[in-house]
């Protein structure tokens, strides 16, 4: 009972703050709202019985990546976004149309969609880690991390200016 109430509380908070992220013009406010979204997601992970993922969600996303976001925003001193493009009625119409189409598509997919865990499914952290490092996933898992490392090195090379 209390779980349900807390779940809907954090779900509403996550959706609401996510709307703020995309809905207003000041980049700093968007960043702060995104922190709230990530925190709410972490609370939902905790409710689902996975404290490890909940903690990681805060450590990695809310605690590290968002600090970098804010750092860059503060460094560049980003002002309110008020470009001419947002004033054009044609673009507004297109945006509303495409947004409606996306909402319709997501609605069709989610309608009547039920997630059920397979019998004997164990989502404990140890079990997930064991699966991840098993022969089945090990190669993909390691390849992904090398891919991220390559992207990191690439970004450094691109950003570095010749002297």
């Amino acid at each position: 009972m209390i779980d349900t109430v807390v779940f809907y509380l954090f779900a509403a908070l996550a959706v609401g703050s996510a709307l703020v992220v995309v809905g207003q013009r000041n980049a700093m406010y968007s960043a702060f709202a995104l922190i709230v979204t990530l925190g709410s997601l972490s609370a939902i992970f905790g409710l689902l019985g996975s404290p490890f993922i909940a903690a990681l969600q805060v450590v990695v996303y809310a605690g590290a990546i968002m600090v970098l976001f804010l750092f860059v925003l503060m460094l560049l001193n980003v002002k309110r976004e008020d470009s001419d493009a947002t004033q054009s009625p044609g673009l507004r119409g297109a945006a509303i149309l495409l947004g409606g189409a996306l909402a319709f598509q997501v609605g069709v997919v989610l309608w009547g969609y039920r997630v059920t865990a397979p019998a004997g499914f164990d989502a404990s952290t140890v079990q997930v880690a064991r699966e991840l490092f098993s022969a089945r996933f090990l190669y993909v898992f390691e390849a992904t991390s090398i891919l991220i490392l390559a992207a990191l090195v690439g970004a450094v090379v691109l950003a570095r200016r010749e002297r």
């Binding site: 404290p51 490890f52 903690a55 805060v58 450590v59 809310a62 605690g63 600090v67």
Partner: peptide, 8 residues
């Protein structure tokens, strides 16, 4: 991990 998360 909790301490790490909150202090971050």
């Amino acid at each position: 991990l909790y301490i790490f998360a909150v202090s971050s």
